[in-house]
Simulated scan of single mutants.
Amino acid sequence: MTRLLLLTALLALAACSEKEAPPEPVRPVLSVEVKTLNQEDLGRFAGSIQARYESNVGFRIPGRIASRNVDVGAEVEKGALLATLDPTDQQNRLRAAQGDLARIEAQYINAQANARRQQQLFDRGVGAQAQLDIAQTDLKTTKASLDQAKASLSQAKDQLDYVQLRTDHKAVVTAWNAEAGQVVTAGQQVVTLAQPDIKEAVIDLPDTLVDQLPPDVVFLVAAQLDPSINTTATIREIEPQAQSATRTRRARLTLTETPPGFRLGTAISVTLSSAIKPRLELPVSVLQEVDGKTRIWVIDPQAQTVSPRDVTLISRNDSTVVLSGGVKAGQRVVTAGVNSLKPGQKVKIDEDSPR
């Protein structure tokens, strides 16, 4: 009887212990929303916005630069004066040409009068044929000299006009290669002009990457100071040879659109991406290795519980993993504390979890 009472007391005590067992704790977790990737990033590079068409212009004649009328960055209209040469030599040549023309014009008038007089004498029968021939020859020679003097005068006027360097189209001055007082030769590069209407992105790409670019590569071009100013671009041309010092090749990209914020010289950041088969990319911290299998913990948002899910990896690096399946876009998976979870365990999603 005593034993029976003792057994009954022990059972009652055990029942009370079971009733008073604390519930499973709710574990706070960090999580991330699964998203599908359709683009693969190939790298990010710095560059600048430049004009597609640039021209290096100079004076048509040699001389000493007397003035420089615009600065770098100035926007100039067609016909604007950029710089001038000292016009002293050209003015002297013009005056000499004008003097030669006046002298030969006088000679031509005399030659005309002489030829006319010899013709009249010959017609009356008192003049010799030889004298008439000489007068007519002198007239033709003087006429040729007169034409040459007129051409020399026209050339001298042009030379005087060439002391002024003007634009033949609307442009932006991007560089000066000569200063006032400097002596330049004919055709020497003096100033660089860019046509602002058509702009493009210019970057330097590693030589090894250029050879691996897929045909459908897409460039995302964004202003470094304001990434919200952005557009896409495609390759227009790539230098055929790499620069020996940097082993890079300059690439020029045609912009899909040209935002107003893309001014000439704007520093840009260019991200390369290529279309790929849709895949799932997650932080490497979501993985848990159990009995040779790889799994992740998926959160049930309604029940606020977690459940393990076996997955297959496509690729993996130090920070991310690419999965072939096992989870869908829009679901949330645990990113921290996966080794201390149990199936069906209640969890609390941290509101500051990355998305």
Rank of each mutant, 00 (worst) to 15 (best):
3 R>Y: 07
5 L>W: 07
15 A>P: 04
15 A>G: 12
16 C>E: 14
21 A>C: 03
26 V>H: 03
28 P>W: 09
35 K>N: 12
35 K>Y: 12
36 T>C: 10
43 G>I: 05
47 G>T: 04
51 A>K: 00
52 R>T: 15
56 N>T: 14
58 G>L: 03
61 I>P: 00
62 P>N: 04
63 G>W: 01
75 E>K: 11
80 A>L: 03
104 I>G: 00
108 Y>M: 15
126 V>E: 09
139 L>A: 01
140 K>S: 09
142 T>P: 07
143 K>M: 13
145 S>W: 11
157 K>M: 11
158 D>A: 15
161 D>W: 04
163 V>Q: 00
164 Q>D: 00
165 L>Q: 00
165 L>N: 04
170 K>R: 07
183 V>D: 15
185 T>Y: 04
191 V>T: 08
194 A>N: 05
198 I>H: 12
208 T>G: 13
215 P>R: 09
217 V>Q: 08
221 V>K: 05
230 N>Y: 10
232 T>I: 03
252 R>V: 12
265 G>L: 12
266 T>F: 00
266 T>W: 00
292 G>T: 05
298 V>W: 05
303 A>N: 13
309 R>C: 02
313 L>R: 05
316 R>D: 06
318 D>G: 13
320 T>R: 10
327 V>G: 05
328 K>M: 13
329 A>C: 09
332 R>D: 07
333 V>K: 06
347 V>R: 03
348 K>D: 09
